[in-house]
Design a binder for these strands. Structure first.
Length: 269
DNA sequence: CTTGTCACCTGAGCGC
DNA sequence: TGCGCTCAGGTGACAA
């Protein structure tokens, strides 16, 4: 489920149920996630109050004054607020709260993680992250400045979390299509003007997706809540061999950095 | 430092 | 029905 908009939607969904609550206990049913779940360390947070729920890139953090729980949803993870619900397949971790509810972490592929963090933003998983695409740091010149001497395809460049966080495989493709840029073009060979456009399109595409995801927020606790991008109009992602919405050419699919990439050879140069 | 490749997993969908 | 294959919203580790 998770690109940045889904993570943001998740954050907004669990925040009202968790902020101000104390952590009663953390139940770990399967500790083999991307990183081992350290039950002992997480137990240090028992009785502590969650004073904030924050997002950094695609990472979520439940903050207490004795440390935080750092969560990543990987490819297939999700968090739900539950009350006395039967444990299902892939429900690996429960964070039991003082209001009787729990934050339940489910992740079939187990590419995500639930880790104890006492180092704040200095934590090794956070320390080297790039700028937030929805912040002021991601200005019209940022990508252009960073792209100097970079030969990698523009798509891999904007998906590099050390440059800018949260741009995943769906929205990278969409933003490049909307900007008319060929995904394989070397980053250093994209003009400043086009970077300005790309920057704006990345912002727009993410904001639209957050808006779409937000519309289903009231149903957040439903198991089958659709992530934002199912409600959004996607122009290229998943549309291989279909007609370009602009020029009607057949959309092509290529592989960039082991990730499939759909684009229009007419509109994107 | 940059770039490209691998690894970690399960489940869905398809052709046979 | 079942088997084998391919593919899927991510990203850290490592080699070159």
């Amino acid at each position: 489920m998770p690109e940045l908009p889904e993570v943001e939607t998740t954050k907004r969904g669990i925040s009202p149920h968790s902020i101000g609550q104390r952590i009663v206990k953390v139940i770990v049913r399967h500790k083999k996630l991307r990183w081992p779940v350290d039950q002992k360390a997480l137990n240090l947070l028992k009785g502590k109050e969650i004073f904030a729920c924050t997002r950094r890139g695609k990472y979520l953090e439940l903050q207490t004054d004795k440390g935080s729980i750092l969560i990543h949803l990987g490819m297939s993870g999700s968090l739900r607020i539950i009350t006395n619900e039967e444990v299902g397949k892939h429900d690996h971790v429960d964070i039991v709260l003082s209001n009787g509810k729990s934050i339940r972490y489910n992740d079939p592929r187990r590419f995500g993680c639930v880790v104890f963090n006492q180092e704040g933003d200095e934590h090794r998983l956070l320390a080297n992250l790039g700028v937030e695409p929805l912040s002021d740091d991601f200005d019209n010149e940022f990508l252009f400045r960073q792209s100097k001497k970079r030969s990698i395809p523009i798509k891999a460049f904007i998906m590099n979390g050390k440059i800018v966080v949260g741009v995943g495989n769906i929205y990278a493709q969409e933003a490049l299509f909307n900007s008319g840029i060929h995904p394989n073009r070397p980053a250093s060979k994209v003009s400043k003007k086009r970077y300005t456009k790309l920057t704006q399109n990345i912002r727009t595409v993410l904001n639209e997706a957050i808006k779409a995801g937000g519309s289903s927020l009231k149903d957040f606790t439903d198991a089958d809540g659709k992530p934002g991008y199912f409600q959004q109009t996607l122009h290229v992602y998943g549309r291989k061999d279909e007609a370009c919405v602009i020029c009607k050419r057949k959309l092509k699919q290529i592989i960039i950095g082991q990730r499939s990439t759909v684009f229009c050879s007419g509109c994107q140069t």
